[in-house]
């Protein structure tokens, strides 16, 4: 009986080991159902003389917005850029964190005082005040943008697809990825691009 159990365990372990490597990464690179809606949000058609004119105007907008260009391929009508910024509402969150720390210290001191009056002793010594501020807030972010200009096949002009995303770090050193899906941001970017096209066309 013991031998049987022993062999069953060994065979199961070997089977798990041999099969586990086959099932990794099967969910990678699948399109999610919202991808077409996102594509629509990120794309707008512009009329211009050529692809280069749009790329030049878009580069001007990126410089207006303080981006640093990382990679370009004008033959494909592509470039990518990034910029580092403080996280949204950083100063408010920093002030809140300081306030929570002060509250922690005050409440710890009050407890300490209460314990002393009632002759209770801390395990870590009576003069030790422990604060544990777990307030998590975002500190910095890296904003990425990718832009692709393609010639429209059915209409006049060119399709411009701009995509914004960012990585945000918090005060605990953890990071998270966020795709920007705010319609107003894209609308504003395309408005700026339209103005830029006008300005560059008139050498302004």
């Amino acid at each position: 009986m013991k031998f049987k159990t022993f062999y069953t365990i060994i065979i199961s372990a070997l089977l798990i080991l041999s099969f586990s490597s086959c099932t990794f990464y099967e969910d990678y690179y699948k399109l999610d159902p919202q991808y077409l809606a996102r594509r629509q949000l990120e794309t707008k058609r512009f009329e211009a003389k050529n692809q280069t004119q749009i790329l030049e105007a878009a580069l001007q907008v990126l410089q207006d917005l303080g981006f640093n260009v990382q990679e370009t391929e004008s033959n494909l009508g592509f470039f990518s850029a990034e910029k580092d910024r403080e996280a949204d509402n950083l100063q408010v969150n920093q002030s809140l964190s300081v306030a929570f720390t002060i509250l922690d210290i005050l409440s710890a001191a009050a407890n300490d005082h209460y314990d002393r009056r009632h002759h209770r002793h801390h395990s870590k010594g009576s003069s030790y005040i422990e604060t544990d501020n777990d307030y998590v807030y975002d500190t910095v972010q890296k904003i990425y943008m990718t832009l692709v200009v393609t010639k429209s096949k059915t209409n006049k002009g060119f399709n411009v697809r701009a995509e914004f995303s960012r990585i945000i770090w918090n005060n605990k050193g953890e990071k998270r990825y966020e795709k920007i899906l705010d319609r107003e941001i894209y609308q504003e970017f395309f408005d700026k691009l339209a103005s830029s096209l006008f300005l560059t066309a008139h050498n302004i």
Partner: peptide
């Protein structure tokens, strides 16, 4: 772009 990639390098040639 659809799959959420940051494109880092391109060379058409």
């Amino acid at each position: 772009q659809d799959l959420g990639f940051m494109i880092e390098k391109t060379d058409e040639k």
